[in-house]
């Protein structure tokens, strides 16, 4: 991000104050799994909604006033702008409060923050998406982005898994990608049930079976840390170099702009320098800090 990018972005905030949220209104709620919901929303101020811009991979701080703020990626694609989306798993104070909200509720929104997936670097390459659980949220912003610009990219493989069929998020996307003949979609679960007819197996193992070529390819990985830790070695086995593996990380965050201190991995702040990183950037710290 250049200084002028920052200045440009800073202007979007009320009085140039990057901590002041705008009011956003929830327009639709989708129950993805028993614990995960997707929220469709728009900024209340229509001019702001129109002026707002973001890129796939960026995140924002969402607040339930009186409860607090939490960071989530913008899970919708910038190519589809009639509303914005984020997904939240009900696990803490803020996400529990978010899950109590209904359509029409007002929340605080400030962002976008952080870097984004490097589209220029991805252009003309084979893309391998590897997702686990609700870690598909940031990937789906990029997946729809590249599908909407399909001729700019070569082969697209998607390997996505969850613990059980009930834990699969964004099933409507999975179906759409499965039907899309320009995309190779592979869905797996750690443990099937009576009705499950798809693959059974952990994501890194299934990825090795799918065995996408590393040639002119970039792998984009997001999921629970345990999945990420085992996916990188699997990709290395397939011939991917650390520079060819991208991921987007999640840490406890408060400010979102590299000031409050807590989301660092070594000298890198996930909020300021990420959340998108290549494995090359973080591999020294991954074993001990992530």
């Amino acid at each position: 991000m250049t200084v002028s990018d920052i200045n440009q972005r800073q202007k979007f905030f009320a009085e140039g104050n990057v901590y002041l949220p705008h009011i956003a209104v929830i327009e639709k709620i989708i129950e993805e799994t028993p614990g995960v919901r997707t929220f469709h929303f728009n900024l209340k101020d229509q001019k702001l909604q129109k002026d707002f811009s973001f890129e796939s991979g960026q995140f924002a701080q969402y607040s339930v006033f009186g409860i607090g703020e939490a960071p989530f990626c913008i899970s919708s694609s910038p190519t589809r702008r009639d509303h914005l989306e984020f997904a939240a798993q009900r696990v803490g104070k803020v996400t529990n409060a978010l899950h109590r909200l209904g359509v029409g509720a007002e929340i605080g929104f400030r962002g976008p923050y952080g870097n984004s997936f490097p589209l220029d670097f991805l252009k003309g390459k084979n893309l391998v998406f590897v997702g686990g659980g609700n870690g598909l949220a940031p990937l789906r912003s990029l997946i729809w982005n590249v599908i909407d610009n399909r001729n700019k990219y070569k082969k697209i493989d998607i390997v996505y898994g969850a613990r059980s069929p009930a834990d699969l998020c964004f099933k409507y996307d999975l179906d759409a990608w499965d039907r899309n003949k320009t995309v190779n979609m592979v869905t797996t679960v750690d443990k099937g049930d009576d009705t499950w007819k798809g693959k059974v197996g952990l994501v890194p193992k299934v990825l090795e079976e799918v065995a996408p070529s590393a040639e002119e390819a970039v792998a984009i990985v997001c999921g629970p840390p345990i999945m990420i830790r085992f996916t990188f070695p699997a990709l290395e086995k397939l011939g991917f170099k650390p520079e060819q593996m991208l991921t987007t990380l999640e840490k406890r965050m408060k400010c979102g702009i590299g000031k409050c201190g807590r989301c660092n991995i070594g000298n890198i702040y996930v909020c300021r320098d990420g959340p998108v990183f290549s494995y090359a950037q973080i591999k020294n710290f991954v074993s001990s800090e992530y």
Binding site: M1, E15, I257, G258, R272
Partner: peptide, 11 residues
Amino acid sequence: MTFEDAYQDPY
């Protein structure tokens, strides 16, 4: 250095 870095911290 921290409070001037990238985004300005107005407070």
